[in-house]
Amino acid sequence: MASREPLTRQDVTDVAELALLNLSDDDLDRYTGQLDAVFDLASKLDQFDVSEVPPTSHPFGLVNVFRADSPPSSVGIDGTDDNVRQEALASGPDVEDNQFKVPPALGESP
């Protein structure tokens, strides 16, 4: 049962960067403590030795669930074809020529 190193501001900065969240200094202070408390809670798991136990990622042991390689037959229920296209494009925050418009991939550093 190794004791855990407390989370640092740098840890939270790194994680926010990975998750694409911008944090202010105040945010950082607050979240560092709060996240650390959650990992404290998690470290209670150390009282169980599960080294020989396999992980479960799905509670029901299903395997081999497939669909046939065919387009949907009924139009409407799923909103296929033009309906989806129009409705999906209508939801776009910025659309040009039926495509979703985004700022350039590179540019001034953020």
Binding site: F39, A42, L45, F48, V50, V53, P54, P55, T56, S57, P59
Partner: peptide
């Protein structure tokens, strides 16, 4: 963390 939790789940 995640791996351990998934094993606890099995337990």
């Amino acid at each position: 963390f995640y791996g351990k939790a998934q094993r606890i789940r099995t337990l």
